[in-house]
Design a protein around this nucleic acid. Structure first.
Lengths: 188, 188
DNA sequence: GATTAATCGGAGCCATCACTCCGATTCTAC
DNA sequence: GTAGAATCGGAGTGATGGCTCCGATTAATC
């Protein structure tokens, strides 16, 4: 049997390089889009291409690793807000932050988009954290009751995508429109 | 001087092929994304690659032609709704239709996204038609007054992008959230 | 320090794709 | 029908990018 599986400690230089590659990939994909070449990532990380492919056997695997990393950070932010005093503010703060990140980090909105489909386990973590934020905000009356996590995810993806282009005041006003919509129907 | 400029009538077969290529490009890019190869477009059109490049000297030019075509159709829809009886309904109907198209036509949301940036003249046409729809809806009190065409465009792009993934009821509910937000703030 | 196994690096392979070139074909004008 | 020009088709070119392979290097173990 192959003995490479299971928690063999991984050599020190290997661990270092793995991290360097991941960070470089994040930076490169954010700056130049997910079509940036693997060689560019390798250069940015200061390692050879072979090393990149050793750690991430496929470009897709590398991308997924970057996505997972980004989504995990978002999930952590969501969890940090989960016990805030004002559930409504917590929910909208989270929403705003995600959109803000997406505006500068190209890879993040892509990750968000995929999170709704591929469901790598970390996408689930984000969904759960978001569901918690949402349901607390709804209990507090800050968000209408007839939307669920899927709808919020869809809106999050949409606004994040839009934020890649629209910036500044336009983005803020568009975001406010969505927020007002989320707060509740204005009808009698 | 080169005499190819100005309205030389263009040979009959050339005109036919130009149309075939454009239609095929639209279909292929919608179905398989804008990364589909030019050769695939040529095959779908039933012509040689050389012919495609003769009419559209660059893949970018071909893409732009597809975008312009899609945006013009949208602009026409908007203009058709411009004189409807109910300005509010007209505005929201247009919004819904655009999102509906974007859900199935991959290239359309890309075109919309670019329309806000590259501003090929047809993008302007759409913007003007949209501005007219919006201002009539606002005069009728159906849409809040503090949003302008840029914000609506941003929302249109965002929701269209999201609609590529989220479908069915989720899409409808998310759309309703945005619509409620557009109708007006619920605050005192 | 020597041994051994894991890791590194990057030249090179193969596939893909945008784009060119030119002989064959087809349209148009007379 | 014919001449001549415009157009067509698709093999070929150059560039790029994902991925492999293996000798050189380096970390861990004794």
């Amino acid at each position: 049997m192959t003995q490479s599986r299971a928690g063999r400690p991984l050599r020190a230089d290997a661990m270092r390089n793995r991290l360097k590659v991941l960070e470089a990939a994040e930076a490169v994909f954010d700056a130049r889009g997910t079509t940036a070449s693997t060689e560019e990532v390798a250069r940015a990380a200061g390692v050879g291409i072979g090393t990149v492919f050793r750690h991430f056997p496929t470009k897709e695997a590398l991308l997924e690793a970057v996505y997972v990393s980004g989504l995990r950070k978002l999930a952590e932010e969501a969890e940090a807000l989960a016990s805030a005093d004002d559930p409504g503010a917590a929910f909208f703060t989270f929403f705003t932050r995600v959109v803000g990140h997406a505006a500068t980090k190209n890879a993040l909105s892509a990750a968000l988009t995929e999170a709704g489909v591929d469901v790598p386990e970390t996408g689930q973590g984000l969904k759960q954290a978001l569901a918690a934020l949402l349901s607390r905000a709804q209990d507090a009356g800050a968000v209408r009751g007839d939307v669920g996590p899927p709808e919020v995810m869809a809106l999050l993806v949409g606004v994040s995508r839009a934020a890649e282009r629209a910036q500044g005041e336009v983005r803020d006003r568009a975001l406010n429109v969505v927020f007002d919509g989320l707060r509740g129907s204005h009808r009698t």
